[in-house]
Every structure is written in C-alpha cells, then in structure tokens.
Design a protein around this nucleic acid. Sequence first.
DNA 1: TTACGCATGTAACCAGTTACATGATTGA
DNA 2: TCAATCATGTAACTGGTTACATGCGTAA
Lengths: 179, 179
Amino acid sequence: MKNYNHTTYSILGILTTECRTGYAIKQLIDESLNHFWKISYGQIYPTLKMIVQDGLAEVHTSTQKGKPDRNEYFLTPKGRNALKTWLEEPVEQIPVERNEILLKLFFGSYQSKESTISLIEEYKQKLEARYETYKNIEHTISTYNNDASQYWLFTLDYGKRITMAAIEWCTSTLNQISV
Amino acid sequence: MKNYNHTTYSILGILTTECRTGYAIKQLIDESLNHFWKISYGQIYPTLKMIVQDGLAEVHTSTQKGKPDRNEYFLTPKGRNALKTWLEEPVEQIPVERNEILLKLFFGSYQSKESTISLIEEYKQKLEARYETYKNIEHTISTYNNDASQYWLFTLDYGKRITMAAIEWCTSTLNQISV
DNA sequence: TTACGCATGTAACCAGTTACATGATTGA
DNA sequence: TCAATCATGTAACTGGTTACATGCGTAA
C-alpha cells in the first residue's frame, strides 16, 4: 500500500468525524488539535483532491444558491483501511524539535547575563499563558463526554505536562544564572 | 537591519567558536546541538555563500594538496552585530510542534485499545533511550568546564526535563487506558 | 456599511532533506 | 582492501506558509 504523509492521514482521520468539507476540517484542527497540529488551506484542498484521485474518498458536490459549491468528502473502504493501517504502525522516530530559545541559550556566553535572563523570563510568561489555555480547553472538553473526548483529554494532558516541565526548567535556569 | 532565518543565525553563532568550515559546523551541530537543532549540508553551504555576499563574514580559502580547497569563514563586525541583535530579541512565539503520537491518539477511538497501548509503549521506550543519551552527553560535557559548558548543560537539562515529563505522561496514559 | 462566516481554490515562495558527485589520506 | 575522515557542493524533491482572488448572506 502507498504511503502518505502525516498531513494526509490527519485529513483521513478527520473525515471519520462529521467534518466533511475542507473548511470544516480546517476549523476542527484549529479548535481541537491546534496544540499539536496545524494545517493551512494551501495543504487541505490539494490533499483532498489527491485523496479522491487515489480512491481514498469520494466527493459529493452540492450547489447552493448564493454560496460556492460545497464539496463533501466521504471515506471509501480503501480510505478507512489506509487510515487504520497507519494508526497501528508504530511512530517511527521522535523528531528533533528545533528550539529557538535553546539555540540562543547555547550562545549565551556570547551575550550579557541580563539579556539571557530577560529572554528566559519572557519565554516563561508565554509558557504560563499557554498552560492556562490548555486548562481552559480541558475544562471545555471534559463537559462533552462522548466517545472521543477521553482521547482528546490525553492529548491535552500531554501538552500540560510538557509545558509545566518547561516552566520548571525556566525557574531552575533563572536561579542558576542569577547566582 | 535585514532579518535572517534561524538557520543563518545558528551558523553565525557557531562561527564565534573555532569551527570555521562548513564541514566543522555540521560536526559541531551533530555533536552538541543535535537534541534541539539540526542542519544539512544542503543548507550550510548555500547559507555560507549568502553570509559572505551580505558581508557578515569573510572567506579565507587555502588550497591543500590532495584535499579540496578549505574555506574558512570569519565573522565581520557586521556579522557579530547581526548575531548580537538577534540574540537579544525575545523569542517570537512558541512554535506548535507537530506530534505524530498525539495525532494517532486523537483518533484513538477509531482503533483497538490494544494497538493504542502498544503504540504508547513503543513510544515510551524511545523516550527512555533518549533520556539515557542525554544523561551520557551531560556527563561528558560536565568534564569540560569551559565558559560555554554551563550553557550547554542548561540546554541538556531542558531536554531531560521534557523527556521525563513525556515518559510520565506515557505511564499515566497507559494506566488510564488499561482500566 | 462593514465585517464576519461560509466556502473554494491557486501561485509564489521559503525551508529543509536526500541523493548524488568528487577524491586524497589514514588507520584497521 | 575497506571504511572512515576531511571537504565541497548541487539538483530534485517534499512540506508547508502566505497572499491573493472570489462572492453571497447575515447580523451589528
């Protein structure tokens, strides 16, 4: 079976939900996956086209008065199969996430202590804001209680834990530098 | 002043050390920054060319018998300045790191419990291996004790904390799923 | 009347990877 | 003799972003 990229699988996955149009896919990602996944229309529409060409989904186009054509996509058995196969494959390797603050810190001996400190402090503030956002989303999701919500909460828990660890690193590093 | 991308600044930063050739830059990154940064020759050589064109560095070429020309790069005051300015700028926004395992987990209700569990278990093993690697590198660096080594240890500490948080998330999630 | 939501799509661009080509020296 | 190290570089490709174009309905 052909291999697709993660973007394609993310779209296949979303097509198992009620989101059927390119527009709705974008919305779902921005609302519910945005802490670990994002995507632009520039990827969505060409990918949907390819998905249909490869027989992973079918389009049903409905013309609406005053609005552009609405293309609704439905997974075919082949599409479901491709998704399932990918879901069960182990994650290849953990990617190296490029981290701008670590890059700057790596060259820390080339700049003043003060600017290093304010760099980390600003970063910490951003992390704290992010943590609050996660808590809010978590709260919203926990009121849903459908089949999928448990898994959504797992992904949020991941985000919270990682963010908290980063915040703690900021605190610890600031202490060590100030001394 | 012109803005460059992070790849360019990483090279400018490395040129403050004794690494002066494209080859040596690649080596330093692979050895010391690889847990949060990586780069390929396909980026390095064209970027070095551009850096010289923009007057951020100068090349000194030495011909060696039997080996290809060795191009050594030296930062100009303009280059040092560009680096310093960037170092002191706050980090814009924390990027969304795409996370394959969270993507798969998000569609967890579409697959069997067993395959979700083995997915997380395999991921956890990879994280544990990574943690060990970090500990080893940390041990090596702490024997150096030069000006920069303190900052290198900070970046490693970050890697360790984040990895540990992810491992704990695996454990917690596995417990919740198995119930 | 202005902006937002619905809805589709493309072209140009930027970033990054992979594979390839070259070739002498040195140590196992 | 085989692999690794030093050393440079390019071309094709994949992935992703941004900016643009279109246009009606509706609510403020």
